[in-house]
């Protein structure tokens, strides 16, 4: 079974890359990551995908054109991660009107999208740790790494510490990195503290930190948000560990890491995605082995 994935990777979101990697591991299955939709006829005619994963922010006029004029109708899977809430209604209308787009599934990592009523099946596919990133050796020791979203989130901390911005070079801080390069330095910090995590999207960087780093904590200025994040993590990791930085719980890093590996890896996310698609039973059986 062939897939195409139109690349919607960003410095903080590597979902297309890890999905491709997992699909390629399956027998008789291949995924091609394509940069844009500008050569859609060439891409679809050569690859002949069963399913094509595309982001809602992309220009898919040509995808509709292709399906209208081709006998081999491509089934599109639409990722709506970057879609702003004000455009959701336009998307609903679009999906209702443009049947030639042949959208079989919508999915996103944003829990807020679960509340929306789409005419097309919707899947909430949370972020996960990209465990395919090669591990780096430890080269220095710093007490804390504080992952911030804006300069106003900086405050005084004890001991040596770095303020780290993931994916935003405009923030003045000690280190700016994308998810992959950040994952490769997490090991050097005794504690990683994520400031103000949005409970509706637990970021990929957080899961990566749980897998690659030592102890990881959350620190939200809004207590309600912090409690919601804690609740989500308790359920997701099936643990009573408090991830609040103020509690400073010395939890077992290895058991959390194992949970991430077994429940929140790219393989789990691909399974979730395939389970919503027709004709993927054999692939799912293959993944169970």
């Amino acid at each position: 079974m062939n897939f195409t994935i139109f690349n919607y990777t960003s410095p903080t979101f590597f979902q297309p890359i890890y999905l491709k990697h997992e699909i390629d591991k399956l027998m008789n299955c291949k995924a091609d990551v394509i940069n844009d939709t500008s050569r859609i006829y060439y891409t679809y005619d050569i690859i002949k995908p069963e399913y094509s994963i595309i982001n809602a922010g992309m220009n898919f006029g040509d995808c509709i054109h292709y399906n209208r004029n081709s006998n081999h109708k491509i089934k599109h899977i639409l990722n709506i991660d970057y879609l702003k809430s004000e455009y959701i209604d336009s998307l609903k209308t679009f999906l209702k009107d443009e049947l030639d787009f042949n959208c079989v599934l919508l999915f996103s990592t944003n829990a807020n999208h679960k509340k929306e009523k789409f005419n097309t099946p919707y899947l909430h596919l949370p972020n996960c740790a990209d465990i395919n990133i090669p591990e780096s050796s430890k080269v220095f020791t710093i007490d804390k790494g504080i992952i911030i979203n804006s300069e106003s989130e900086k405050r005084e901390y004890d001991g040596s510490h770095h303020f780290i911005s993931i994916g935003n070079p405009d923030i003045k801080c000690d280190i700016t990195a994308n998810n992959i390069s950040a994952s490769r330095i997490y090991k050097n910090y005794k504690q990683l503290i994520f400031r103000n995590i949005n409970p509706s999207i637990i970021p990929e960087a957080f899961y990566n930190a749980l897998y690659f780093g030592n102890r990881v904590y959350i620190e939200n200025d809004d207590k309600n948000d912090g409690d919601k994040v804690q609740e989500i993590l308790s359920k997701a990791l099936d643990t009573k560990v408090s991830f609040h930085f103020k509690d400073n719980e010395q939890y077992d890093v290895e058991s959390v890491r194992n949970k991430i590996k077994t429940k929140h890896s790219p393989k789990n996310r691909l399974k979730q995605l395939l389970s919503q698609l027709k004709g993927t039973h054999n692939l799912l059986l293959q993944m169970e082995k």
């Binding site: 220095f140 020791t141 710093i142 007490d143 001991g159 040596s160 510490h161 770095h162 000690d174």
Partner: peptide, 8 residues
């Protein structure tokens, strides 16, 4: 230096 380099 003390904050970002520590004892390294």
């Amino acid at each position: 230096i003390d904050r970002t380099i520590g004892d390294n």
